[in-house]
Structures are given as C-alpha cells and as structure tokens.
Design a protein around this nucleic acid. Structure first.
Lengths: 224, 224
DNA sequence: CCTTGGCAAGAGCAGTGCTCACTTTTGTGG
DNA sequence: CCACAAAAGTGAGCACTGCTCTTGCCAAGG
C-alpha cells in the first residue's frame, strides 16, 4: 500500500470521525450545530476541521447524504420479500422505524430547509431511493395485474407523470405514478407529524395509527 | 382614555412592528433570525427589543402563534359554504394557498422543531384550529348520514380516538376521527413536500397534483 | 540529506444572544 | 405646574459563533 493511500485512509477515518461527532451534536443543536463544539469534542482546533469540510454547510451536506442513503438502504432492505402489498407496508414501517431511531437525521432531511441552503446535486440521487422503491413495488404489482390503474388523469399533469414513469419506472401507468408519489408524501407526512410533535397529547398508539394510515394508502393504490 | 392605556397602546404598536420586521427576516434567515439585525432595521439598540420580548425564542413563539392563528382563520373562512365534500376541499386549498403566500411561516410551524425549543401552552389552542375545522366538517357529514363510518378500529387506538371525539367533536365515530386526522396529516405532508422542495424537478403542476391527492383523501373519508 | 505538501494551531474579524448599569423620556399625582 | 417613579432606550461587555489567514510542524519522497 503506497503512502498516498495511507494518507487517504487516515483522511477518510478522520472525516468519518468528524461526521460521527457532528451527528451526536445534531441531537442537541439540530441543523445549527456548532462546528467549534464538534472540534472541541475531537480535541482539535476548529480551523483544522476546515481541512476536511469547506464549511459547516458542507459538513451538513455530508450528513444529509449519509442520512438519505441510510433510510434508502433500510427501505430497500425491507422490500425484499413478500407480496406486493406486504412489501409496500414493510417499506412504510422501515422508513418509520429508521426515523424513530434517527430522529435528528430525519429532521435534517425532511424538516424545513434552512433558507439560503441550496442542496447540491450529490444529494438528489440518495434522496430518491425511498420513492423509487415504492414506485418499483407499485410497478411490479401493476405489471402483475394485481392493481387497477384507476381513473385516468388528464392534461399537463398526466404528461408530467408519463415523463416520470419513463425516467424511473418504465411501464407504470401515470395514475400509478401519481398514487405512488401521494403515498410517499403521506408516508413522510405521517412520520414527520409523529416526530415533530403534532400528535402529542392526542395519539399515543403511534404505530397502530401509522399502520391505519398506510393501510388506507395501500387500499387507495389498489393493493389487496 | 387613561395614560396607562396610551402606554399599552404604544407598546402594542411597537410589539407589532417588531414582529412585522422579524417576519420579513424569517424569509432570509428562517428560524435562526438575528435579533440584532431586526433591531437595526428598526433603528433601535438590540437591548431595547428585550423590553418587548424576553428572548429570541419568545419572539419566535409570538410569530408561531400568529402564524397558527392566520392559517387557522383562513381554513375556517374557507369552510363557510358548500356541501361537506366541497368544504373539505376548500379547507385543503385554503391551507395550501396560505402556505404558498406565507412560506417561511409555514416552515416555522410545520417544519422541523429546533431542538431544545419547547412550545409553550399558548401555542396549542391556535395550533389545532385547522384540524378542528376538518373534524367539524367530517362530523357534520357523518351526522347528516352522508358518509359511512367504515370498518371499526379496535384496541387502545379506538379508545384514544373515542376520547378525542368526546373532547373535540362529540358524536363523531372513532373511525371518522382517525380518518380526519389522517387527512390532515396528508394535507400538511403535501404542502410541506411542495414547499420544502421535495417535488422539484418532478412535478410542476403542483395545484393539480395537490387536488389529486386531496380528492383521493376525500374519497377515503367517504365524501361523495 | 533536504524539499515539499498536507495537517494542525492560534490569532483575529465580524457577527450573534443576552445582561447590566446607565440615561432619557413620559404619564401622572400632589 | 412640576417633581417623581416607572417605563423605554442606550452602549459596553461577556461568551459564543463561522470563517480566514499566517505560522509552524512533520512525515513522505527524491
């Protein structure tokens, strides 16, 4: 192993360590974590952190990408077996379970964006993994003839949906694309509502209520 | 008019002016707006602002309460006429329209909460106006026999739903309470998804897609 | 051996929330 | 009408922030 790769290796380890500490700080400070505090926890000068991340926003972007990839992997992992309806519900629960285990990272990726923060291109690909997984399940079910497309959509929205189908899950009827997106949006909304305290002093049986919502969504899509 | 009330009047005007300027700053800085910058815009020392708000969090809380009241009033206003299904859709669009016109205030109330920020009691009552409005419409429709309760819910979730029905919209079947809550959550999720950029480069026909989602939700509730 | 390139440190700048001692303003009761 | 107390406003100061820039260090490579 050459010296250069040793350097690179140490650098990658340091980078990971910074991210790990920053993730911990996410819990107390949210998106406005203190880079100086992170550096203090690492026993290094704050200026040294800038060797690894060009700015605090860059560090946050790295955390965002990791979070998207983590929840995306959890969603994909959960959808490996079972019938189409089961796979859909499994993805929903996998996303919720991940969010419960990583609350502050969920807030980072699905909470209100910081004004002025522009998500770089690199975040797009990891960000779409969950919805792509849902779309794939719906497409599989549609191709298997298990679900009906439902009433057609007209106008420019339909054209847009056809473009999306073409780019991501060829062969899916546009209505099904719309239904997949709607289900994904409801899923994210339900998880955010639970995590951001909208259900406080109202619903304690969170899992049951979540399941109720996602089953209804499954029915709307057409899963039996 | 006594002097005391003159003082109070001037004080209230000053308070409103601070909130107005702070609302403007919300657009650029989001929840971590700068109290000093607000004071500068007002041409006063930053320490003077503390005569009106005990802390920056207090100022934010005031903005949050105003925002909840504003969107709540918009929802209530929109639900004055029409059939039950139309009223439901009107509320959905009223909320979305309000959010589009007041993006940063939406982010303030429905975005990720700042860790450490504990919402005071005063925020609860304004916060529930929208869901109460939806619940009232659903209850009216149920009492009018326009919608079917649907499959019963069992267990502790059902008990919770009964308590909620009792406290907020007596006479509503528990399933309908659950359906109302689910619709409200989907509504908030759809608006947040649109505002927080989840639909970027995907759906441009936002209003049509939103309507598609809310119509599906109306159908799930049972509106004809 | 010395050079060089990456790493770290620390001072410094401009900004932040918030406090405190202080002055100014202002409504009002004697 | 005017002195006075309460309210409003000021500016300095503390500890913190993100970020930059200069300086020193130290190991890898010729």
């Amino acid at each position: 192993m050459t010296a250069a790769s040793i350097r690179a290796r140490v650098r990658a380890e340091m980078t990971d360590e910074i991210k790990a500490v920053a993730r911990r700080h996410l819990a107390t400070d949210g998106a406005n974590l203190s880079l100086r505090a992170v550096a203090r926890d690492l026993g290094m000068a704050s200026s040294a952190v800038y060797r690894y991340f060009a700015s605090r926003d860059d560090l946050l972007t790295a955390l965002i990408i990791d979070a998207y990839d983590s929840v995306g992997a959890a969603a994909e992992e959960s959808a490996r077996t079972g019938g189409h309806g089961e796979r859909f519900l499994a993805v929903c629960h996998a996303v919720r379970d991940w969010a419960l285990a990583n609350r502050h990272e969920w807030a980072l990726i699905y909470g209100s964006p910081v004004p002025g923060y522009q998500a770089p291109r690199d975040t797009v690909e990891p960000a779409v993994r969950v919805i792509l997984q849902i779309g794939a399940i719906v497409r599989d079910a549609a191709l298997a003839g298990e679900i009906e497309p439902g009433a057609p959509i007209t106008g420019r929205l339909n054209e847009e949906l056809e473009v999306i189908a073409e780019q991501t899950a060829a062969g899916t009827p546009p209505q099904m694309v719309a239904r997949s997106l709607a289900a994904w949006i409801h899923l994210c909304g339900a998880v955010s509502a639970e995590l951001f305290g909208q259900l406080n002093n109202t619903i304690d049986e969170r899992r049951e209520f979540f399941e109720f919502q996602m089953r209804a969504e499954a029915k709307t899509i057409g899963f039996r």
